[in-house]
């Protein structure tokens, strides 16, 4: 088991990591290019960043994206925890697996289907496309991942804790807030974090349910990129990369501290 990797294997891994990271650093590198293209590096400049921070419209979009992400993560975490508690409380196997399947529908559905069906839903329900439709959609697709992050924690919790609390006279609410919730906190945090990244990253669903006046970062980048290369996007991507790294490191330490085997998830 403790054999060293052969040179060929190491080379292969190095190559894979190079290919995975090269495009990201490529973007960041050219964000400092005064030439205005992604192929001819003229000289170092911070103009694109300056332009970025001067662009009020874009800053509002960034703010929108963050507000949507935080709100949807918060609300979906609450609903998800409730869902996990319910699914855990179901005793019948048949019912349980039905709920688990229903729960995972939105995880396995392609984004296009979610987007299209939500568009129909919001139109039928008379919800104006814009902030609220995007928020509702983000809450909706984040709920199941929270459930899946919390459920394993509930399952590994020994039921004797609850029995002990009961015997000592705790009420249902007491059991929930003093025993169950503290125990599953790492799962809740992981779920919240995943919901946050889901929301920040989503493009397809938002693209369907966003109206004319409202835009999130992903949708904005898409419309900019369709017009061709503009180094504003590069500057934006460096900042987002930095932000993602900070999030990941933060998440890594949170899970590292709370559990020995921090369950890492990937975005859909």
């Amino acid at each position: 088991m403790k054999k060293k990797l052969s040179p060929v294997s190491s080379l292969f891994l190095v190559l894979i990591f190079f290919i995975l990271y090269a495009p990201i650093f490529f973007l960041i590198f050219y964000s400092f290019n005064s030439g205005g293209t992604m192929f001819n590096f003229e000289s170092f400049t911070l103009d694109w960043y300056r332009e970025l921070f001067g662009d009020t419209r874009l800053l509002i979009i960034v703010l929108n994206t963050l507000v949507i992400a935080l709100l949807s993560a918060l609300i979906s975490t609450i609903i998800g925890v409730i869902g996990a508690l319910y699914i855990h409380s179901v005793k019948k196997r048949q019912t349980k697996s039905t709920f688990l399947s229903l729960n995972s529908v939105l995880i396995v559905s392609p984004d296009v289907i979610i987007g299209a069906s939500f568009l129909i839903l919001f139109t039928m329900a008379g919800i104006k496309l814009g902030f609220y439709s995007v928020l509702l959609a983000h809450i909706a697709f984040s709920v199941p991942i929270v459930v899946l992050m919390v459920l394993p924690k509930l399952m590994e919790m020994s039921p004797t804790y609850i029995d002990a609390a009961r015997d000592l006279g705790a009420s249902s609410i007491g059991v929930l807030t003093k025993v169950i919730l503290p125990y599953i906190t790492p799962g809740i945090f992981a779920g919240f974090f995943m919901a946050l990244t889901y929301s920040l990253d989503d493009f397809a669903v938002t693209f369907f349910v966003t109206g004319n006046g409202f835009s999130t970062l992903s949708v904005e980048i898409y419309s900019l990129a369709r017009r061709g290369v503009s180094l504003n996007i590069n500057a934006l991507s460096s900042l987002l990369f930095l932000f993602t790294v900070i999030l990941v490191v933060g998440y890594y330490f949170i899970t590292k501290r709370s559990t020995k085997s921090g369950g890492m998830g990937v975005r859909k």
């Binding site: 990591f17 995975l20 990271y21 090269a22 495009p23 990201i24 490529f26 973007l27 050219y30 992604m38 192929f39 990244t197 920040l200 990253d201 493009f203 970062l217 992903s218 980048i221 898409y222 990129a225 061709g228 290369v229 996007i233 934006l236 991507s237 987002l240 990369f241 993602t244 790294v245 999030l247 990941v248 890594y252 890492m264 990937v266 975005r267």
Partner: peptide, 22 residues
């Protein structure tokens, strides 16, 4: 493994956009 996963958390659009340049 974490380092393999990190790029998957970078916004999809940005990765696609990078390849427009490359």
């Amino acid at each position: 493994l974490l380092l393999i996963i990190v790029p998957s958390w970078i916004n999809l659009l940005l990765k696609a956009y990078a390849f427009l340049g490359i």
